[in-house]
Computed example of a mutant assay.
Amino acid sequence: MSNGPAGHAACSTVRPNTETGTGTPLRTFLPTADGISIDSVYDPGAVVYDASAPPSRDLVFVVAHGFTGDADRPHVRRIASALARHGAVVTFSFRGHGRSGGRSTVGDREVLDLDAAVAWARRLGHARVVTVGFSMGGSVVLRHAALHPGTVDAVVSVSAPARWYYRGTAPMRRLHWLVTRPAGRLVGRYGFRTRIHHREWDPVPLSPVEAVPRIAPTPLLLVHGDSDGYFPLDHPRMLAEAAGDHGELWVEPGMGHAEHCATDDLLTRIGTWTAARAG
């Protein structure tokens, strides 16, 4: 395992993809294997002012957002715009989030949502499919790659937990209240536009740290901030140890948690890493 370089925020300059000649974004609802409709958006890529780094037309990023996010949230759109400098991008809303159907299972059945989005990316003709997940989505991309081997060409997991039921930080204690209490689920529905399932996991799904060893030989990148307020550094270190030599760990100095704290520089480095290793 290795620690990647630290970076500082940089302004990205991206033109709308309507200027590329590759087509406008496509939006649809994808059915999952268990019958949930998932709101999904395909962006074929963007023209960038930096002509030395054109987007790859065979590469597509499938972005898995964090808990309470959705495909229309500004922080998710910012991630998509940054990655579109390197290839096409599929974003979607997990079940129970945004305009998707169903109710959130907080990382369990969401593997089926991601699998539907990955399959769509393949049907759109992309030879290289890379999953990029943040927080809850980071755990989902790890579990998806383990449970559906060979379906993706690289995996990037940002700010993911290593194990379930972690309550060691105040933000995670608040999140557990949101998920497990009726009053919390009401706050989730009306305050965060997130519909949360009332049933507990049965059985408990494969944990991220149990999933990671099954991902090899698919290239794996783990990214975590050393100022993450949700999951301290023992989480990425557990994942890195479980991954062994087939993955990389970047500990980002000063970075907080997930999409909101992913700088443009970090997203550029993720795009460059992916283009070099996927496929």
Rank of each mutant, 00 (worst) to 15 (best):
R122N: 11
R122M: 03
R123K: 14
R123L: 14
L124C: 05
G125N: 05
G125I: 02
H126V: 09
A127G: 15
R128N: 00
V129G: 00
G133A: 04
S135C: 13
M136E: 06
M136N: 05
S139A: 15
V140D: 01
V141W: 03
L142F: 08
R143W: 03
H144Q: 13
H144F: 08
A145W: 04
A146H: 03
A146N: 06
H148W: 11
P149H: 01
G150F: 06
G150W: 05
T151L: 08
T151W: 02
V152Q: 00
D153M: 04
A154N: 02
A154G: 04
A154Y: 01
V156Y: 02
V156H: 03
V156N: 01
P161M: 13
P161C: 11
P161K: 07
P161T: 04
P161W: 06
W164T: 09
W164I: 12
Y166W: 15
T169A: 11
M172R: 15
M172K: 12
R173W: 09
R174E: 15
W177S: 09
L178S: 05
L178R: 04
G184L: 04
R185L: 08
G188C: 14
G188D: 01
R189T: 07
R189Q: 11
G191W: 00
G191C: 01
T194S: 13
T194Q: 04
T194E: 03
I196H: 01
R199N: 12
R199P: 07
R199T: 14
W201V: 06
P203C: 05
P203V: 07
P205T: 03
P205L: 08
L206Q: 13
L206K: 06
V209T: 11
V209K: 00
V209F: 13
E210D: 15
E210Q: 15
A211C: 05
P213G: 13
P213R: 09
R214W: 04
R214K: 14
R214I: 04
I215P: 01
A216E: 05
A216V: 03
A216L: 06
P217S: 09
P219G: 08
L220N: 09
L222Y: 02
L222D: 10
L222F: 06
H224V: 11
D226S: 09
D228E: 06
P232H: 12
D234S: 14
H235A: 11
H235T: 08
H235L: 11
R237L: 15
M238A: 15
A242Y: 01
A243R: 00
A243H: 00
A243C: 10
G244D: 05
G244T: 05
H246E: 05
H246F: 13
G247E: 09
E248Q: 14
V251R: 07
V251D: 07
E252R: 15
P253G: 06
G254R: 10
G254E: 12
G254N: 12
G254P: 10
G256T: 08
G256H: 09
H257Y: 14
